[in-house]
Design a protein around this nucleic acid. Structure first.
Lengths: 220, 220
DNA sequence: GTATGTGAAGACCTTCACAGCG
DNA sequence: CGCTGTGAAGGTCTTCACATAC
């Protein structure tokens, strides 16, 4: 899991020193969102307050933010607007990303209609399905395209993120094709583990796994 | 996060000795699914093979399974059918669970249509929305019910799992009501951190967090 | 006084490597 | 001989506690 290592020590990305632990990275989006929950009048925010909104320990917040090189002010806290920018920058949210959704079934359609998508610079640039009956249908304002055009369209539209919303059986093949087409970030909603080459990052979102973890605890 | 501690050391649950680490619990569903990917002719399965399907290290598989008290056979491997039963049992999948979905928007509708739901004993027993225009609409074979009936219906139908598919702003209130109605397992799809009392387990599934983690890595 | 930034301690998790058993 | 089960080693992550700075 997790391949980090910025190859060139000094040049990786402006102002981020060294690497950021994976556990920290997974909390940064939560902090970023939490800032949005503050009253707009508030300029400054303590680690304690951020922690309570984000649902973590305040020492965790301070340590996490210290990895960004973000400096708060002792005795005061973090400057909200600055911190927001630092987080956006660290997460790479200063540019936009073109996303492809593969699978125009219930889930794929729901995702492409998801409003919160645009707000952080993600844009759905294409939605694919291999069912000819679905091709051409309008979903979330886009016409469904045939899966056979995947490689071509990914290249044309500069798509760098693929969201797999197919049945489990198709997930691996779709991942292979996305990878070959140059996509290096995949979000997999299919209930299957997919295997990819080094340098491609996959994250899995799996309803039945989550439900089963809940039942494990419930049963105690 | 994670509150474990089976109160009575010896009596927690049949054949599970002590507690199972959270990290292990989160992989058990993956192993269970992986067993389904084996050729049906195969009776027995090595940790190596399971590991490669599940995408983890084989020592991990052996250690994880050893927590179940599940005994494989040295020199041979694990008996597939037995292991499947052990996993189902450990995860509490030997009984059914009634689930409520709150929010009948795109996501809620997609979830209630999700076929893979039933296969592990989960049944959608109700779907709620607070938009009067939606109440009565059929979604995944169920009529949408008004949110005001939540408590009553949860009790009547023995619902123990709540899936929050509302906008962020409504999530905390819905969680509070679910909790008061006695639901102790919540799967939260809303982009918000929700706070609950001890003894209630919440798992968060968050599209924008996942996308932002991907962009972090992509940007290196 | 107040809140950050961080070394150190401790909990947790993963991986190795091999003893032990079929 | 092959593969499990597991002590021990090595990481990673979290939390504490306090020196440090405003």
């Amino acid at each position: 899991m997790a391949l980090f290592r910025a190859p060139r020590p000094g040049l990786s990305s402006p102002s981020v020193k060294g690497d950021i632990p994976a556990a920290t990275v997974s909390r940064l989006p939560v902090y970023l969102r939490s800032l949005g929950d503050l009253p707009p009048s508030q300029d400054t925010c303590s680690s304690e307050q951020l922690a309570s909104i984000a649902g973590v320990n305040s020492a965790q917040v301070r340590k996490d933010l210290s990895h960004l090189g973000s400096y708060g002010t002792r005795g005061v806290g973090y400057h909200v607007a600055d911190l927001r920018e630092q987080l956006r920058h660290a997460l790479g949210l200063t540019r936009g990303y073109a996303v492809a959704i593969i699978g125009a079934g219930n889930l794929g359609s729901a995702l492409s209609n998801y409003a919160g998508f645009g707000s952080w610079g993600f844009g759905v640039a294409a939605i694919f399905d291999n069912d000819p009956a679905r091709v051409g249908e309008l979903v979330g304002g886009l016409a469904v395209e045939p899966l056979s055009h995947l490689e071509e369209i990914v290249a044309e539209r500069g798509i760098t993120i693929g969201i797999i919303a197919t049945p489990a059986g198709a997930a691996q093949e779709v991942a292979d094709r996305l990878t070959k087409a140059g996509v290096r970030s995949i979000l997999n909603f299919a209930p299957a583990v997919i295997h990819v080459t080094d340098g491609v990052e996959v994250r899995r979102v799996d309803l039945s796994t989550e439900l089963q973890i809940l039942t494990f605890h419930q049963q105690r």
